[in-house]
């Protein structure tokens, strides 16, 4: 019997009260739509103002970014390449370590180990990013300079590595969820054919969970692209088009922080660049998020 069948007809006063409450709740739920609309609208309006003064061709083809200099150049590539570089280094750390941890926790570890280790790893994800930035600048960079003498004080290598450590629990947790969701019948069938535990994990369970695993990696990449404080503190403030991980660079997020720290009056070109860069960042992460959402839905194996 459905719940609605049991419901008494409310009297008029009650009915009006119920209606008002429902409308209030509906308004609360609409806030999320308004937030998205607010983000898109505020980013777009100032970005349009930016492109009234700077051509979109210059934005996409110029290789220098000097909006705070006397001769202003507005090429997004130095910022975009730095964002890509730091995120790629973070992925090199987070993906192998996170994936192996996920496979180990899901297929090899005992229930007790899993229940102890998972919350401990979650602590890593709960540390504020400004703390990671501090750690990268004051601990990891001096340490790495012992091995790589030409490493600058500010560099994308140490920012990227620390960002990767931060993302290990992110990749591990989401991938472990995907692996655990694979039904046991598949594992038992593989054991029945004489597979070892390693073969079950790598040849059966991992391929079956691949959509969830890829989605977790894409989401982690999106997180790295939008990450701000670690790169703002440890990667430097020098916009340059390079893939050299030992020199100071400036990511899109670092640029937004740098301009925000100064007093930028509304209506100046510097103010508009905030939104042009923010809009580019939003598009990047939005595409990655939609892609991971699509991956999960499109390639999910459905089991009874």
């Amino acid at each position: 019997m459905a719940v609605t069948d049991l419901r008494r007809q409310p009297n008029l006063v009650q009915a009006i009260g119920e209606r008002i409450i429902q409308i209030i709740l509906l308004v609360a739920a609409s806030i999320s739509v308004l937030t998205t609309a607010g983000i898109v609208f505020s980013l777009l309006s100032e970005t349009i103002a930016f492109f009234n003064e700077v051509s979109i061709v210059e934005f996409l083809t110029e290789t220098e970014w000097t909006p705070l200099f006397a001769t202003k150049k507005f090429g997004i590539w130095p910022l975009a390449s730095a964002t890509f570089l730091t995120s790629a280094i973070a992925m090199l750390v987070a993906v192998p370590l996170g994936l192996i941890a996920a496979i180990f926790l899901s297929e090899f570890a005992s229930d007790r180990i899993r229940r102890t280790v998972k919350p401990l790893l979650e602590i890593l994800a709960g540390i504020p990013t400004v703390v990671y930035g501090y750690f990268a600048l004051t601990f990891l960079t001096p340490l790495l300079r012992g091995f790589i003498p030409e490493l600058s004080i500010f560099n994308s290598l140490s920012a990227g590595i620390v960002m990767g450590v931060m993302l290990i629990p992110f990749v591990a947790s989401l991938s472990e969820d995907a692996l655990s969701a694979v039904p046991n019948s598949l594992r038992e069938a593989a054991y029945g054919l004489g597979s070892t535990r390693f073969e079950v994990a790598t040849l059966v369970v991992t391929p079956a969970a691949i959509s969830g695993i890829v989605a977790s990696i894409v989401l982690a990449f999106s997180r790295a692209v939008g990450e701000t404080m670690i790169v703002a503190i440890a990667a430097g403030q020098n916009p340059r088009l390079t893939l050299d991980p030992t020199v100071p660079v400036m990511t899109m997020t670092s640029y937004i922080v740098q301009v925000s720290l100064g007093d930028t009056p509304y209506g100046t070109i510097e103010y508009y660049t905030l939104y042009a860069v923010g809009f580019t960042l939003f598009i990047f992460t939005f595409v990655l998020n939609i892609f991971s959402y699509w991956m999960v839905r499109k390639f999910r194996e459905v089991y009874d």
Partner: peptide, 24 residues
């Protein structure tokens, strides 16, 4: 629409919220 918005908003970088707050 609300549900898609909530899951997308959870993945928007926090600095973008800062730009929203500055403007709005």
């Amino acid at each position: 629409l609300v549900e898609i918005n909530i899951s997308n908003l959870a993945a928007v970088p926090s600095i973008i919220y800062g730009l929203l707050g500055l403007q709005v």
